[in-house]
């Protein structure tokens, strides 16, 4: 890992178009500003990891999907409290 010491309002550049700047240094955290092309996705690590775990849990054996769909059918269209 590349490690830098940055002061308030100092920045680093990644590649030719991504800037990461220290906007505020507080007691409980550091506020970071990321400047990148709008098409570059930027995510909070913990959110990304949470979705990654959820996706891993959602991946299913394709052979079992018809069976699962049959089992779940109807349930999904009947939200709790709105039994039809």
């Amino acid at each position: 890992m590349l490690v830098f010491t940055r002061k308030l309002d100092e920045a680093i550049i990644i590649g030719d178009g991504i800037e990461v700047r220290v906007l505020r240094i507080g007691k409980d955290g550091v506020r970071i500003g990321v400047t990148a092309a709008a098409t570059v996705p930027v995510h909070r690590r913990e959110v990304y990891d949470q979705i990654r775990a959820a996706n891993a849990g959602a991946a299913a054996d394709p052979k079992s999907l018809n069976q699962i769909a049959a089992r779940l059918r109807g349930a999904a269209l009947t939200p709790a409290g709105q039994k039809s």
């Binding site: 959602a58 299913a60 054996d61 999907l65 769909a69 999904a76 269209l77």
Partner: peptide
């Protein structure tokens, strides 16, 4: 066979496969 669900399956290999549904349902 899947209704009202939708299959989301990798086109670049065997994995992963998901069962999905439109959230407004």
């Amino acid at each position: 066979a899947l209704e009202p669900f939708t299959l989301v399956q990798s086109a670049d290999g065997a994995e992963p496969s998901f069962l999905a549904i439109e959230p407004r349902l």
